[in-house]
Design a protein around this nucleic acid. Sequence first.
DNA 1: CGTCATTACGGAATGCGTAATGATA
DNA 2: TATCATTACGCATTCCGTAATGACG
Lengths: 296, 296
Amino acid sequence: MFDFSQLRCFAAVAEELHFGRAAARLNMTQPPLSRQIQVLERVLDVQLLERTSRSVRLTAAGRSFLPEAQRILRLAESATYLTRQVAAGRAGVLKLGFTAASAYDCLPRLVAALRRALPEVTLALREMVTKDQIEELLAGRLDAALVRPPVTHPDLLAVRALAEPLVVALPAENPLAARDALAPGDLGGEPLIAYAPNEARYFHDLVQGLFAEAGIRPRIVQQLAQIHSILALVRTALGIALVPAGAEHLRLDGVVFRPLVLPEPRPAELVLAWRRDADEPLIARLVSVLAAMPPA
Amino acid sequence: MFDFSQLRCFAAVAEELHFGRAAARLNMTQPPLSRQIQVLERVLDVQLLERTSRSVRLTAAGRSFLPEAQRILRLAESATYLTRQVAAGRAGVLKLGFTAASAYDCLPRLVAALRRALPEVTLALREMVTKDQIEELLAGRLDAALVRPPVTHPDLLAVRALAEPLVVALPAENPLAARDALAPGDLGGEPLIAYAPNEARYFHDLVQGLFAEAGIRPRIVQQLAQIHSILALVRTALGIALVPAGAEHLRLDGVVFRPLVLPEPRPAELVLAWRRDADEPLIARLVSVLAAMPPA
DNA sequence: CGTCATTACGGAATGCGTAATGATA
DNA sequence: TATCATTACGCATTCCGTAATGACG
């Protein structure tokens, strides 16, 4: 088999059609250049150049070998570059899971920040509920995941990605919509579209605890898992709902949002999780991009 | 820069995930294999493998480098193969010129024979008159050409590709069509659609000479360069014509062909010409394929 | 303590540069 | 005779294999 150095020698001579100039370009003297070409021809068992002491010409075989040699050299260069980028976490594929709710605000901002900071990174996004994401993380089918806390598994690490307050979503015609802000006490009598305890465990517990703290038993008229479904029902004036502030990006006609004032903040949190032993250098980059992300 | 041997070493270890087995596959011992991998990692300045004395695993960078390494190795193999094929005249591009008339019979057979004998050869075909083909040959823009003799230029070589008799093309309703064969003497009174002396010099001279030999002055009603145009006029019963036998492949309704019997054969010849100094190994193959071609 | 990767070391081969040779216009 | 590719030769480097070492279960 030939050698990269032989390919470089051949390409130089084939382009210059002159051993002296080619040798100069390669920072070497003619004799070793001559020999490298001879070795290459011997290895291929093909004459690539026709040379007299006055002229150098490519044979038909040489003409067909030149672009191949150039392509191999380019490929070697780009493989080197790519591998260094991957090792530095600046390139590669990041398999990222996210919860449906994070898609309204946190995920798009994270994706935008990643595209700016790490343009050579390809994202493979999958929407899944927290529990499934944890499984996929552990199985190595996800590299990182935007999930609801807490992340307790010993093989996983996590940092907070977002803490957003809950807001009240209510039909525009509801009298409470006239108020600038609302407290749990204002909502006691309102029909509440709430979260399903199994499919949306985190929000269910959050809302549940919040009302319990205020000493109020909400009047639950419906339980759903998906925020966009809940808001669709709010729009039908079936009732009001508590949703994370990011959901305001879902602009539905007839649905208005009002801040929820609490004695102490009870934000909905989102964390970024990954395997403790992950060898993806990308993870470290991802975490720092997340940390540098503007909180808005 | 790394080395093909290092790529092979890495690919083997990455595929086996075991230095011992990889070394066996490469017909070498572990130590040099270990060192080649180390050198590769040092050259790239990237860790490709994570190894303990019990296990070998690919890093993220290693996973991205493996397919690149395999691709480079495959490309080197295929470049070697291709170049050897080109050197042997079994691959490459052959720029072949041909005259319009040869397209009816000789060229298709030659193309078919080439496809069978040299499937990796690509043909670049161009239809041109003989004079232009000679020019293009000399300029290096054609590798070979099917032209009318004689080829006298000292820089060119040629072999006969085809010698086909002339036949009489005549309207089906012409009384002569009842005959099995015709001689020049039978054609004296017939209106003749003949060849233009400039654009179709070869056929013009051939037909001219043939009648002169028979002592007959033909009654020329039209002069054209292209055989298909001549036959189209024969079909209108404007007159008869003499065309090479291969033109019988052009089946026009209302036109019949009859052998032309001559005191001595005066075939229309076609020769294959190429530059004497052509370095295309393909030329030699082409000539032998032509020689082996069934004359039918 | 056995397996497996790595380091240590000696000998062979490869590859460079300088000098000499050969061929061509 | 000047230019340019090739051959000759000496020295440094590289690379293999054998032997020894080290780490992990």
